[in-house]
């Protein structure tokens, strides 16, 4: 090697990080003097998030799409709209009373009929850890399920946007005055939009859920569904090509997921160590060293912070106090991301 000979036996940083990762991160986090703030191995402050970049509508064959880059994690989300005929929908009953526009609250067709289909694919070579040509890994399945349940529990997509209505023409003649001819035929639902939400990881460097969820929300905001109508002669659903007649989805709020990890100073001992750091938006290196993780999903779009979900696992360090801190971190992150999501 051309490098000058080192006077002492020392490793470059990368080798040290590989050989003993835990002391490496600990050495970074423990400040050398009380005045300097502790920094992580990636030079971020413990509560600092990576910058995010959003790019919407870059895919042509998808009704809505988004590319989200958070640090070195890159996600592509494409949403395809397909059509489920009401006659094919298992368990859907055309009920005159319930078909009225004032649908009973709390009744979610999207959930009953499975109209939102999110899938996460990690086997795209995004990280050397995932093998190719294999069925989805446990992580991918877990992430898909979390996105799926959050989509439904957050009620993000309005069920009304997914219905395709048909107003039967009034066929009754003027001179033929039957008793029941006076009432105009009621509109009926002929089909439903099904949104296939496919999330591909181009690059993975930690924190897959936050990035995937941000991509889903961003892509949903980008969705433009063409106007659909029922053709009674052909008994098929057709679509208008005109862009002017297509419509965007009305989303209920814009939730943001925020994940933090807890790094303990002592690697093995479970209890009696108070020294710990809360690391926001972890990367792959940090994910390998921490077992306790907290994910909160917040939405502040109504002015008040709404918590859509908390999941916490892996340890007992985060209590009420720490939880408050995490939530305030999440609120801060929401402000950053919501600007990007709406812009």
């Amino acid at each position: 090697m051309a490098a000058p000979a080192q006077p002492t036996l020392s490793f470059p940083k990368e080798i040290f990080a590989k050989l003993s990762p835990h002391p490496y991160l600990l050495a970074h986090l423990q400040p050398s003097s009380p005045s300097t703030p502790s920094r992580r191995a990636n030079a971020r402050l413990p509560d600092q998030f990576r910058p995010a970049h959003f790019n919407n509508g870059s895919l042509t064959h998808a009704e809505g799409s988004a590319v989200v880059r958070i640090g070195d994690t890159t996600v592509v989300c494409g949403i395809r709209g397909e059509v489920l005929l009401a006659s094919n929908a298992a368990g859907f009953r055309m009920d005159k009373a319930s078909a009225a526009p004032a649908m009973s609250k709390g009744h979610s067709e999207a959930k009953e009929l499975d109209l939102l289909v999110p899938n996460i694919e990690l086997a795209t070579g995004c990280s050397p850890a995932f093998l190719l040509g294999q069925p989805p890994s446990t992580l991918a399945q877990g992430l898909s399920t979390r996105v799926y349940s959050l989509l439904h529990s957050s009620n993000l997509v309005d069920g009304d946007d997914l219905r395709i209505w048909y107003q039967p023409p009034d066929l009754s003649d003027e001179d033929m005055m039957d008793e029941d001819a006076k009432e105009t035929p009621e509109p009926e639902i002929k089909a439903f939009w099904t949104l296939y939400i496919d999330i591909l990881f181009i690059s993975l460097d930690g924190n897959p859920f936050d990035a995937a969820w941000a991509a889903v929300v961003s892509a949903l905001k980008n969705v433009r569904l063409p106007k659909a109508y029922w053709d009674p002669d052909r008994e098929m659903i057709f679509y208008e090509d005109a862009v002017a007649e297509s419509k965007k989805l009305q989303l209920n709020g814009s939730p943001v997921a925020v994940t933090v990890l807890v790094f303990r100073a002592k690697e093995k001992i479970q209890s009696n160590d108070k020294e710990h750091w809360i690391l926001a938006d972890p990367d792959t290196f940090e994910e390998g060293l921490c077992s306790e993780s907290v994910t909160v999903i917040v939405d502040c779009s109504s002015g008040k912070t709404q918590m859509l979900g908390i999941s916490k696992s892996g340890g007992t360090i985060v209590g009420t106090e720490e939880m408050k801190k995490v939530v305030s971190l999440a609120e801060k992150r929401w402000l950053e991301l919501s600007l990007l999501l709406s812009g």
Binding site: E82, N88, D114, Y239, E240
Partner: peptide, 22 residues
């Protein structure tokens, strides 16, 4: 069906057919 993925409605969906095709 693939149980390891989210498969969507069992009734089956089809791609939109645009009126221009007609």
């Amino acid at each position: 069906s693939d149980r390891r993925r989210v498969n969507g409605p069992s009734g089956g969906t089809h791609t939109p057919i645009f009126s221009k095709y007609l």
